[in-house]
Design a binder for these strands. Structure first.
Lengths: 214, 214
DNA sequence: GTCTGTGAAAACATTCACAGCG
DNA sequence: CGCTGTGAATGTTTTCACAGAC
């Protein structure tokens, strides 16, 4: 352990943790890298190698303790604490994100909402009031915002990113259909279903018209 | 050209196409790999190498014609036609997806909605009627569904995937928080903001508490 | 016997660096 | 000149294969 850890490895850990949670719920106590790999469609060697960057979690001849490994991975990822998020942009998309229950249940709490539309400022979504972007610095200080969620139109995306970075936010979840630019200490994850589809069509196009006649 | 094309390259093409579209809208007619790379935060060599898998699109001493390169990339990706999608699951998430205007504007048309809740079947969202999953085979044949969007809870995800695959759908956009399993001819793209956040926190945790005091 | 952890090998992806075109 | 297209070099990731633990 204690080498430099490849980013691809870190990106796979949440997938492992999620699968372990599902196994745990089904009452599975122990699992081998072979079986976990089958479940996730990856090779057992990859799972073992990935985990080996962080320590020795398995038992030879047996496999991994499901509950323990899940807890360890979550700790490694920093999921043993709450993360505080602000959503910028409460249009259709921002509102859908604000009321999505999947964040809170995983420890990602939305603690502030921002928009630049005067008609929206002051309105309430869930139990949060929509605030003006002018209040960003103040609210960021009061609420300790870890992560900013960018849910504004493309043409306002970079401006919003710059403001979030300026008040000390170091993690961004970007829903705007643009490539945003940030200083090196800021981490970005893009969520863009259209881009995902646009690379998939390359393969749909090239895997011949399957045309399974009725 | 005409080698085997790495998947990472295909995944970057939509990003290039999107940036080219934005440049085009701003009236930029020609761009070099250096400038496009700066814009996207990638090396110019990567852009040139990626494009070289598909042909020679640039002009030495000048760069790339923005409108032409965009059109070529979109053709390569199969974005010069319409793609027909069905959404399975019209809960909160499925409805948000159904009324998201970003798909249609990029040529991804939602042509059918399914759910297994009798209270939802027969209701209308936009101009589409929600149908029972029992009608899937019939509707898939009538409507020529290319892509299935999985927007059901985790515990129903795999079942829905199997049904979609059974009626000949070869592309899936998966919003369920599970790793789905499909035969090799089926392409999957996962959309999961929680998983995206869960790998980001690793870096937020490890890049020290920046703590920029007010 | 079963399964982990891990160096070494193989496969894959990115970057370099430059010949050659406009 | 400036910039592309591309083999060769470098760096990264995955897979192999096996010693050793249970």
């Amino acid at each position: 352990m204690s080498e430099r850890i490849p980013e691809v490895v870190v990106r796979r850990l949440p997938i492992y943790a999620r699968a372990l949670g599902q196994l745990e719920a089904r009452g599975v106590a122990v699992i081998s890298s072979l079986d976990l790999g089958r479940l996730l469609g990856v090779t057992p060697a990859q799972i073992r190698k990935d985990l080996s960057y962080f320590g020795e979690f398995g038992k030879q001849g047996t496999g991994y303790d499901v509950a323990h490994l899940k807890r360890e991975i979550r700790r490694i990822l920093g999921l043993d604490r709450e993360w505080r998020m602000a959503i910028v942009g409460v249009g259709r998309l921002g509102r859908a994100i604000a009321s999505y229950p999947g964040f809170a249940s995983e420890g990602f709490r939305v603690v502030a909402l921002f928009d630049n539309d005067p008609a929206k400022i002051g309105t309430t979504i869930g139990d949060l009031v929509v605030r003006s972007m002018d209040e960003l610095a103040k609210v960021a200080a009061d609420e300790r915002i870890d992560i900013g969620i960018v849910a504004v139109p493309a043409d306002q995306g970079q401006e919003v990113v710059d403001k979030l970075v300026a008040v000390g936010v170091t993690g961004l979840l970007n829903y705007a259909p643009i490539t945003i630019s940030v200083p090196p200490h800021v981490r970005v994850r893009d969520v863009d279903p259209v881009v995902a589809l646009q690379s998939m069509t390359y393969y749909l196009k090239h895997s011949g018209p399957d045309d399974p006649a009725s």
